[in-house]
């Protein structure tokens, strides 16, 4: 070998960035800690014994217990009812608001755009307190109806935020084309605009159903004594002595909401549109 030749430099492979070991380690720990608590609940829902810390064999007894617990079943029914009504109410009001908001360029539009943002930055406890005071002030008896109203109030903003960007992205000429072809404004809305928004509307409906079903704080402040929404029951149960039944209920709720959120993410794809994640990052 020729001693005067410069030593060959180790070639840096371009485009291949070094793996950030630290960041990846943190991410792995993060995912473990994110899912472990959920896994614990699921695991102990199948525990054969009453213990909440030691797993002693598989059984479905806590699920059985749940399905024989008329109070919990009543709560489940109420939660489903509240979620359904809140979903329908907030989707109807929220979609209309999103449509009006984007097209309404006057003072009303500006005001509406402002007040629909406020709930998103208000902690639920404040909304809860405010709703409670309003219902008491109006002399209304707290029951599932008051929970529905509070949940609708809280959900309208979500629907509007999700729909607003979709409405803004619509080509206004399409609606004009419908009117050009003889449709009235309402017909154009019904026959052309709403079908174009359908994926986003369905996705936000499913999302709202899941959010309301899981919501605790608002329901806690606005519910009457009997029946109470499932989340409120779970709260009392955890706070005042845990029964393993809670694990079973919790597991069922997890399964339900994960299915729903998966559905919400998948809906736009079912319609052949791109992405679904922006549904969430839009918040």
């Amino acid at each position: 070998m020729n001693p005067t030749a410069p030593p060959p430099r180790p070639r840096r492979r371009r485009g291949q960035r070094r793996r950030p070991v630290f960041a990846i380690a943190v991410t792995v720990v993060f995912f473990v800690l994110l899912y472990l608590p959920i896994a614990m609940v699921v695991l102990f829902s199948f525990n054969a014994q009453k213990s909440l810390t030691i797993f002693k064999g598989f059984s479905l007894r806590w699920y059985e217990a749940f399905f024989h617990d008329s109070v919990l079943l009543g709560s489940l029914g109420m939660s489903l009812e509240v979620s359904l009504v809140a979903m329908l109410g907030s989707v109807v009001l929220g979609v209309a608001l999103a449509l009006g908001l984007v097209r309404n360029k006057g003072r009303l539009g500006a005001y509406a755009g402002l007040i629909m943002m406020v709930p998103l930055i208000t902690p639920e406890i404040v909304t809860g307190v405010a709703s409670l005071l309003l219902f008491k002030g109006l002399g209304v008896t707290l029951n599932s109806g008051t929970v529905m109203i509070a949940e609708i109030t809280f959900s309208i903003s979500y629907v509007t935020v999700i729909l607003r960007s979709r409405v803004a992205a619509l080509n206004p000429e399409v609606e004009e084309a419908a009117m050009d072809l003889g449709a009235t404004r309402w017909q154009a809305l019904r026959l052309v605009t709403l079908p174009a928004l359908l994926p986003a509307i369905l996705a936000s409906a499913v999302l709202i159903f899941a959010l309301v079903f899981d919501d605790f704080v608002l329901a806690y402040f606005t519910t009457g004594v009997d029946p109470q929404p499932l989340a409120v029951r779970i709260y009392s149960a955890i706070r005042f002595g845990v029964e393993p039944t809670i694990n079973a209920v919790g597991t069922l709720m997890l399964a339900g909401s994960i299915t729903l959120i998966g559905l919400a993410l998948a809906i736009p794809r079912l319609f052949g549109r791109r992405g679904g994640l922006d549904l969430i990052s839009g918040e």
């Binding site: 994110l34 899912y35 472990l36 608590p37 959920i38 896994a39 614990m40 609940v41 899941a210 959010l211 899981d214 605790f216 989340a231 779970i234 709260y235 955890i238 845990v242 809670i246 919790g250 709720m253 997890l254 909401s257 994960i258 729903l260 959120i261 998966g262 994640l277 969430i280």
Partner: peptide, 14 residues
């Protein structure tokens, strides 16, 4: 994102 939509109380309890 998905676990975030799971019930807050149940997650907190776990």
């Amino acid at each position: 994102v998905v676990p975030f939509f799971a019930n807050y109380l149940v997650r907190m309890y776990g």
